[in-house]
């Protein structure tokens, strides 16, 4: 099936092209090549008249129905419950686990009612612009305080908007997550 034999030299070595009667080969080639081309056209033609096979996802239009996979890694989030409480106790394991320094935990000391000094988070700084969504911080967190969010539309006009503070103002750590 060599329609167009091209140049037969290949690094100096001649390649023998099998000789089977010239006319037979000549017309045989034409028919095999035409049929191979028609096979391809049949396939594209099939898809042309079968618009139901179209696989396009109409992305911005299907926002409402778009469901991300359960484990999809969109951004690191620190979930708060209805009492504005989160589970982070400021142990900084996530900060150490992060390979590219996307997490900065600023801690402060709080005096609890029984007079003991306790380490609490002041700000939970998350650099979304540096994060590679590797999931290592989530794995490292001993109190399961952080989870991966599903949001993926992160584009903004200024990179500074991607530096996020995850703990909400006035939030406290949950009782059961303390130490």
């Amino acid at each position: 099936m060599v329609l167009i034999t091209g140049y037969v030299k290949m690094n100096g070595t001649e390649i023998n092209i099998k000789k089977t009667g010239f006319l037979k080969e000549y017309f045989g080639t034409i028919f095999t090549s035409l049929s191979s081309l028609l096979t391809g056209m049949k396939l594209t033609g099939y898809y042309f008249i079968h618009p139901n096979k179209i696989i396009t996802e109409q992305y911005p239009d299907n926002r409402a129905t778009l469901k991300m996979a359960e484990r999809f890694r969109g951004e690191v989030t620190l979930p708060h419950n209805e009492n504005n409480e989160h589970r982070c106790n400021g142990c900084q394991s996530c900060e150490i686990a992060c390979p590219n320094g996307s997490i900065k935990i600023v801690t402060k000391h709080e005096i609890s009612e029984d007079g003991k000094k306790k380490k609490r988070i002041d700000t939970w700084v998350y650099h979304l612009e540096m994060c590679t969504f590797c999931n290592l911080c989530i794995e490292a967190c001993p109190s399961k305080a952080i989870v991966m969010g599903k949001k993926f539309e992160h584009s903004v006009y200024d990179k500074s908007q991607l530096v996020k503070i995850l703990n909400k103002p006035g939030s406290k750590v949950m009782k059961e997550a303390e130490e």
């Binding site: 898809y47 042309f48 618009p51 696989i55 396009t56 109409q58």
Partner: peptide, 10 residues
């Protein structure tokens, strides 16, 4: 459009 339909897209 022809290209798109042959390429199973819109």
């Amino acid at each position: 459009k022809v290209a798109a339909f042959m390429e199973i897209r819109l």
